[in-house]
Amino acid sequence: MHRSDPNDVPLMTVHALKKHFPVGRQLFSKEPKAWLRAVDGVDLQIHRGRTLGLVGESGCGKSTLGRLLIRLLEPTSGAIKLDGEEISNVSARKLMGLRKRFQMVFQDPMGSLDPRMKIGESVAEPMYLNGIGNRREKVAEMLEAVSLSPEIANRFPHEFSGGQRQRICIARALTLEPDLIVADEPVAALDVSVQAQIVNLFQDIQQKMGLGYVFISHDLGVVRHIADDVAVMYLGKIVEQGSVKEVLDAPAHPYTRALVSAILPPRPTGVRFRPPVSGDLPSPINIPKGCRFASRCPMAKDLCREEEPVLRRVANGQHAACHFT
C-alpha cells in the first residue's frame, strides 16, 4: 500500500467481514450444533493494478474470503465496498450488473470448464449471461490474449492439458474486462514446468489491462513473485498484512515467521532443514479464546490465551496481530 497514490480510492474495501457456516443440526432445535467461523472479521483493501496475495494454510478461510469478495457467498456480516459503493447487500438484479466487474479463476482447471461445452461456448458464457453481442470475435481476441489459437473454440476441454485449460479459464474471466480478478490457487494443480507460464501470463495481463488481483495461494514462493501486498490468514482472521517486502522479508507475527521459514530453500544448503513449528491447524469450529495461534506459538504467554490481539501497525504499511511485536 505504501507504493500506491494516497489519493487513490481503493478498488475494493472490505470491513469487518464475517462468514459463519452452521455445522450439524440438533434434533429439536433450529439452532445448529456449532458454527464454523471460516472468515471472522477481516479488513482489506484492494487496489487497481496491484496484486494482493492472500496466504494461509488449508482451512484458514482464504478461499471462503475470496468467494465472499466476488459475492459467490453471502457474508454473515460486514461491509464490501466497490469504488466506495456498498455491494454486500445489493439486490440480485444489481449484482448481475456488478458481476461484470469482478471475476474468478479457480484452482482446478480440469473441473471448472463444463466437459460437455465447447471451449468457445465456455469462454462466451459470461458475455451471453450479460447480453453482450459480437461474442465470436471477442472469444477469438481473448484466446489470443492468453496465447491460444482462436481455432480451438470448436474443441472440447478434455483435449487440453491443465495449463492450457487454465489459460482458457483466464480468457473466460477476461471477456467482460473486469476490474478485479480473484484467483484461488490458480497454479497449485499445475505441473511445475507449466506454473511459471501461468504466473507470467497473469503478470502480462495485469500490465496490459491494469486490473487488480487477489491471488490466493499457500505457496509463498509464488506469492512473493506475483504479489505487491500480502495478507496472511490464520483461522479466519488476518494476522499480518503489508507489502511483500515488509511481510516476507521481516515478518512480525510468529505465524508468518513460521510460514516463511517453512519455505524450503530452492537449492541445497548443506544444513539439515528443521520444521519451524509443531502441530497442525486447530479446527475452525471451536476456536479457543485469546490468540488463535497460541496453541502452536513458540512464544505464547498467559496473556495470549486470555486476550485476542488486534491488528496493530508495526512498520510503514505493515500491520500484525500479536501482543509481542
Binding site: V192, S193, V194, Q195, A196, Q197, V199, N200, Q203, G221, V222, R224, H225, V244, K245, I263, P266
Partner: peptide, 16 residues
C-alpha cells in the same frame, strides 16, 4: 531455472 523464490518481481523462466 523455473523455480520461483529467489528475487521477487523478475520474470520466471517458463519451459515452453
Amino acid at each position: 531455472r523455473s523455480i520461483p523464490g529467489g528475487s521477487s518481481q523478475e520474470r520466471l523462466e517458463a519451459i515452453p
